[in-house]
Simulated assay, not measured.
Amino acid sequence: MKTPVNTFKQALQNQQVQIGLWVDLADGLCAELVAGIGYDWLLLDGEHGPSDLRTMLAQLQGVSSAQGSIPGLATHPIARVPMGEVAIIKQFLDLGVQTLLVPMVDTAEQAAQMVRAMRYPPDGIRGMGSSVARSSRWQGYPNYIQEANEQVCLLVQAETVEAMRNLDAIAATPGVDGVFIGPADLSASMGFPGNPDHHEVQVAIADSIARILKVGKAPGIIATTEEQARKWLAAGALFVAVGVDTMLLSDAARNLLSRFKSSAPKSSAGGY
């Protein structure tokens, strides 16, 4: 069998907009449920969600189960690693993840190191352990180590003032497929913690999307309101998360309770 084609990476290269959902509940059953909805991609969060390798594996298996049971479903799982470290990236890739989101990448040098961590030698420094790993389906993909480098997809997060200064070089780094703008951390770095809707932050985000597109890479972002999502899609963002599982659940639960108890707290959308 041939190593599966990374359809998400292919879509970004073809400048096809990809609509996603953030998944922070770190549960395989929840991942399976939302994977069957029809989003183009799901972000399985290993940075702020309580995911470890075992729960990440369960979520990947949940997504695969949904894909196998629903004809035509092509939801792509993306894993966010807790930090940009070579050993962690190796472990996530060996789980079978093809696309990784790496937080807090502030320089082109950091981005280049993440590119190397994603690839087998001679193009990179990824450790050779796929023969015992889910990534190769335990050698079910006999040419995995020859094919994997073409199918991995690296998304890096630019979410600080320093990253904004270095954004052009970060985005232009060979092997970086997309740059994700983190509104919450960026707003804090700019001096407006908890206020990603601040005018200066919004201007910086719009400028960042344009700069990423200018160097031929895919810009991405998360939005927790429809207004924001449509704004960034119109600005040219190619992969946009339009919601978060925890917020969807808590908002729906609050709204339901408010129909029966007048004292129930009301939901409120916020930045992420």
Rank of each mutant, 00 (worst) to 15 (best):
L256A: 09
P82I: 13
V203Q: 10
V176C: 00
L100V: 06
D106P: 00
T225A: 14
E200K: 08
S262F: 12
I70N: 06
N166W: 00
V5F: 02
K9M: 11
A172K: 08
D197Y: 15
P122G: 03
P174C: 00
Q151W: 10
V115G: 01
V34F: 08
G84C: 06
S135G: 13
I37N: 08
A11F: 04
V81Q: 10
Y144T: 05
V179T: 00
T107D: 00
L57N: 14
A172V: 06
R134T: 03
V97E: 01
L21T: 14
Q98W: 05
A253I: 08
S208C: 04
L57W: 05
E109V: 03
G194M: 01
Q18H: 15
F192M: 12
L155T: 07
S268L: 08
D106Q: 04
G36N: 03
V102M: 07
D106N: 05
G271D: 01
L95G: 04
R254S: 12
Y141A: 05
Q16R: 10
I37G: 13
K214M: 14
E226D: 15
D251S: 12
L248R: 15
L248P: 06
G36M: 09
V23A: 15
A66S: 03
D123G: 10
H199E: 13
R116G: 09
G84T: 10
W22L: 05
A133E: 03
P103W: 00
S268M: 14
P174G: 02
G140R: 03
E85Q: 15
P196G: 10
F92I: 13
M56F: 09
L73F: 02
T75C: 10
S187T: 06
E226R: 12
D94S: 13
E200F: 14
Q13P: 15
V156T: 01
Q91E: 07
R116W: 01
P265M: 06
W22Y: 09
L42P: 09
W22T: 08
L43D: 03
L154S: 03
A218Q: 02
I205Q: 02
P77M: 12
I70C: 11
C153F: 03
S208D: 13
T99G: 06
A35R: 07
M104L: 01
S250C: 15
G20A: 10
G191R: 11
A206Q: 11
G236T: 02
A87S: 04
P122H: 04
L25F: 02
T107S: 04
V5E: 01
T246E: 11
G243L: 05
D251H: 15
Q98D: 13
Y141Q: 07
R254V: 09
P103V: 08
A74P: 08
L53R: 03
G72T: 12
R119V: 03
Q202V: 14
G68T: 14
S258E: 04
S136Y: 09
A252Q: 10
A79D: 10
L73C: 00
A188V: 06
K261S: 11
S268D: 11
G140N: 11
S187P: 00
I19R: 12
E47Y: 10
P265K: 09
T75A: 12
S268Q: 15
G84N: 09
L233M: 11
P4I: 02
Q13S: 11
T160I: 01
L257P: 13
R80F: 04
N143F: 05
A35L: 04
I209H: 06
